[in-house]
Design a binder for these strands. Structure first.
Length: 492
RNA sequence: CGGGGUGUGGCGCAGUUGGCUAGCGCACCUGCUUUGGGAGCAGGGGGUCCUCCGUUCGAGUCGGAGUACCCCGACCA
């Protein structure tokens, strides 16, 4: 009973934390607020990275890398941007240590004070736009479509594994365009790319929408986002794509010569997803037995557990497994044969379920005689005895079935927990139940803040693509006229 | 930065109104028996009880200060 996971309904956040640690994805580090991503967790992140990277390149983007440190003066060039990040920055003030003259160990050498402090990037707009200034002269230099895979630091008060850590891994795209229309199209392209990735790979349905002015990225004219629903009914912002207008171009004086010979400021976007996606993946699909991984992101697709009494049986079973493994490898699946001899099969079953491996194959002496194997699905927790013959293709097609099933389950859950609410009394009751509330809103920040103050619910987004949301109505709080419903929810 | 809680082998905890050699479960090591849903028995190793100061014949236990972490708020991908 070493690795029992707590139940979801008892304490959702404890369940989540427990799961992350027990499933071997990550753990807290010695550094406050920072986490260690363990090999099993990182393997999932690598799959996410690879797929996104492929999609970025298919849409004409290139990877580049910019410095970790940002001179303090850069950060203050865009007024809203500083305000948004100032409160959570790590600052480098010195560049040297020395032996402690009054004792043992080392102290900061006071003589090594930096003339200008360096900020550990909370995001890279400023350093990148300072660089783009030198890259852009003419309309022929545009567009610039760069992405970087990097780590950033935001000194958060409270942290949670994957969902909010002081340091996190992400990708951040930064693009420069000649026209407003092109920049807006880029921001939309990316948010759709994210949504499609979430659906196809993470088996995660998301709502694409626009942030209200209040929730917008510091320095953006518009923030597009994808919002997902977790199993406790809370919303999680899974990715953002910002239309930055000419704000950063103006702050860093980035102009280009048009065909006609005029000087114009360039238009910008930035966009990103982070290791928070891992949190979304875990919270959206897992159950009380542990992680449930969609096959497209699972580091191990199939785990095989031999059941045996004698050495001869063990050898014969593992031989049969090796043969099946070879066939599965040919089909592109990753396979693990768990032939540890110090653990019982029941323990292994539980352990691999905890780690979310989509399919488990158990073979025992009985199967060996009958030419069968026991195949268990992680998503449904069902198992059946199947003939060894043709098992490779059966398992291969199971992957798509499982992927789809996990997605459908998440869609169903979201639909069951999304509802229209039209009165304030109803809102107060419904928000306690969790989920997405589709409500009319008068469009003012005051109303939005009042609702947040009273209920902790925020506008997750103004959905872009849902026709049903466009209709006349009255604001759920103020009663003023509204033309479209927005999504209210409590969030992470 | 406010409110609450916890610091005892690697992990999770117990330790009564201060009392004698600091204990339990898991994990670990050795051996035997086991293996179709988290094995059993026997033996074994591992502790400056967060730190400092105080009270006392005697402190894991009481008091004070510090410190670290967790939970709830404010802040956020």
């Amino acid at each position: 009973m070493a690795k029992e996971v707590t139940k979801r309904e008892d304490n959702y956040s404890q369940w989540y934390n427990n799961l992350v640690v027990k499933a071997d994805l990550a753990e807290n580090s010695a550094v406050r607020g920072c986490m260690v991503i363990k090999p099993y967790g990182y393997a999932i992140w690598e799959k996410i990275q690879a797929q996104l990277d492929k999609r970025f390149k298919e849409t004409g983007h290139q990877n580049a890398y910019f410095p970790l440190f940002i001179p303090k003066s850069f950060l203050s060039k865009e007024a809203e941007h500083v305000e948004g990040f100032a409160k959570e920055c790590a600052v480098v003030t010195h560049h040297r240590l020395m032996k402690d003259p009054n004792g043992t160990g080392v102290v900061v050498d006071p003589d090594a004070k930096l003339e200008e402090e360096l900020i550990v990037r909370p995001t890279s707009e400023t350093i990148i736009w300072n660089t783009y200034k030198n890259w852009i002269n003419s309309y022929r230099d545009l567009p610039i479509l760069c992405n970087q895979w990097a780590n950033v630091v935001r000194w958060e008060m409270r942290t949670r594994l994957f969902l909010r850590t002081a340091e996190f891994l992400w990708q951040e795209g930064h693009t420069a365009h000649a026209t407003k229309e092109e920049a807006i199209a880029e921001a939309e392209l990316i948010i759709n790319l994210y949504a499609d990735f979430a659906k196809q790979y993470m088996a995660l349905p998301v709502v694409i929408g626009k942030k209200s002015a209040n929730e917008r990225f510091a320095g953006a004219l518009d923030t597009l986002c994808i919002e997902a629903m977790m199993q406790d009914g809370k919303a999680l912002q899974a990715g953002t794509s910002h239309f930055l207008g000419q704000n950063f171009a103006k702050a860093f004086d980035v102009k280009y010569a048009t065909k006609e010979g005029n000087l114009e400021y360039v238009w910008a976007t930035s966009w990103g997803v982070s290791t928070r996606l891992m949190g979304a993946l875990i919270m959206a699909h897992s159950d009380d037995n542990g992680l449930v991984l969609p096959p497209k992101l699972a580091p191990i697709h199939v785990v095989m557990v031999p059941i045996f009494k004698t050495d001869e049986e063990h050898t014969a079973i593992v031989d049969a497994m090796e043969a099946l493994k070879k066939q599965l490898l040919k089909l592109g699946l990753s396979v693990k044969i768990d032939d540890r001899d110090n653990l019982r099969s029941g323990f292994k079953f539980a352990e691999w379920e905890l780690k979310g491996v989509p399919v488990r194959v158990a073979i025992g002496p009985r199967d060996l005689q009958n030419g069968t194997a026991e195949v268990a699905r992680r998503d449904t927790l069902t198992k059946e005895i199947l003939p060894m013959e043709g098992l490779d293709s059966t398992i291969f097609s199971l992957m798509d079935i499982i992927q789809e099933n996990i997605y459908n389950k998440a869609v169903t859950f979201r639909e069951e927990n999304t509802r229209k609410v039209d009165s304030w009394e109803e809102f107060l009751v419904e928000i306690e139940k969790g989920g997405f509330l589709m409500c009319h809103w008068d469009g003012t920040t005051q109303t939005e803040e009042k609702i947040k103050e009273l209920t902790k619910a925020t506008i997750r987004c103004i959905p872009l693509d849902t026709d049903v949301m466009i209709e006349e109505g009255k604001c759920v709080y103020s009663g003023k006229p509204s033309h479209q419903r927005v999504i209210f929810a409590r969030s992470y």
